[in-house]
């Protein structure tokens, strides 16, 4: 028998499967093109024009002027600094607190299930609600926290947490930590549960003390999970809008780059300038993403 080897590029069966796949994907991809890529492209386009809301169809091209205008605005740089301060401090605190709680929940303690359920609550309620609840608890005269501090004799009279310009950023960070720590806990806990128990048991039997087990076993094995969690949180923190806005409106102390961009757009009705600011936000977030993903990659490559 002569073996007839007919090399086909791709068989009909394979092509049929690919066609089906694209058909199934089409609705979702079209939706994403319409609500994500098209608007993003339009934003980029508008950022080179002097369009305004009074007459959005009538505009002219002004080149890079919007970008240079924004770069020359002190308020933009202040907003960027606020955003970065907020991002670095809150993500750092969330990671430490999240790691601690996750380690605790990974132990067999009574009520573990209850804590694991309770921890979802700050995550599930709207940021607006969280902001309002904390604002109420931090109220200068009637807030429960000031009351408690006065009763404990720690302070003489109520502190205006949200009204005091030097405190308000701290309050924003504090509330954000409360809202998003659950997310950190869940991701780190999932990472912890991927670590085989035998590895820990082997170390225990070998008499390795707990702190060394933590540093040399748990933490290195958790690095990928923490890395992913930090990535998600940083990107989220970089575009933060609602918490600052609800708590302090347009206060310069807590203005983030998202608030700045929206102000250009909505308050000042400048589509061109607002688009340029939005584009800056996009690139800031993209830069952060590339930096972190690059670090994670490098980390993964060197640890191999």
């Amino acid at each position: 028998m002569i073996a007839r080897v007919i090399a086909r590029g791709r068989s009909r069966l394979e092509r049929r499967e690919a066609t089906a796949a694209w058909l199934f994907l089409a609705p979702a991809l079209i939706a994403l093109a319409a609500v994500a890529f098209w608007p993003l492209a339009r934003t980029l386009y508008f950022s080179f024009t002097d369009a305004t809301f009074d007459d959005p169809s009538n505009y002219g091209f002004i080149g890079w002027r919007n970008f240079t205008d924004i770069a020359g605005d002190k308020l933009w740089w202040l907003a960027l600094r606020n955003t970065l301060t907020f991002t670095v401090i809150s993500v750092a605190l969330e990671t430490c607190l999240g790691l601690g709680i996750a380690l605790l929940l990974n132990q067999t303690i009574p009520g573990r299930g209850a804590i694991r359920a309770a921890i979802l609550i700050p995550w599930a309620i709207p940021v607006v609600v969280s902001a309002k609840v904390w604002e109420w608890m931090l109220h200068d005269q009637f807030g429960i926290i000031n009351n408690a501090l006065i009763n404990l004799g720690l302070i003489e009279q109520g502190i205006a947490w949200t009204a005091n310009p030097s405190l308000v950023m701290g309050v924003v960070i504090f509330i954000d930590v409360w809202i998003t720590t659950p997310f950190m806990v869940l991701l780190i806990l999932a990472g912890l549960q991927l670590i085989p128990e035998e590895v820990q048991e082997a170390a225990i039997v070998d008499g390795v003390p707990w702190w060394k087990r933590f540093w040399s076993i748990t933490l290195p094995l958790l690095r990928p999970a923490i890395g992913v969690a930090v990535l998600f949180r940083v990107l989220d923190a970089m575009r933060m809008f609602d918490l600052s806005y609800v708590l302090a409106g347009n206060s310069q102390r807590t203005m983030t780059i998202s608030i700045y961009a929206r102000n250009q757009l909505v308050a000042f009705q400048e589509i061109g300038l607002g688009s340029a600011a939005s584009t800056w936000v996009f690139f800031a977030v993209a830069m952060a993403a590339i930096l972190i993903i690059g670090t994670l990659r490098l980390d993964r490559a060197t640890s191999r």
Binding site: V35, P39, T43, I257, S275, S278, F282
Partner: peptide, 19 residues
Amino acid sequence: ILVVSIFPQIAVMPGMFEL
């Protein structure tokens, strides 16, 4: 799809407004 999930909302807002 992953990239879209990191788009800042503000970045698409002018275009979305128009849409």
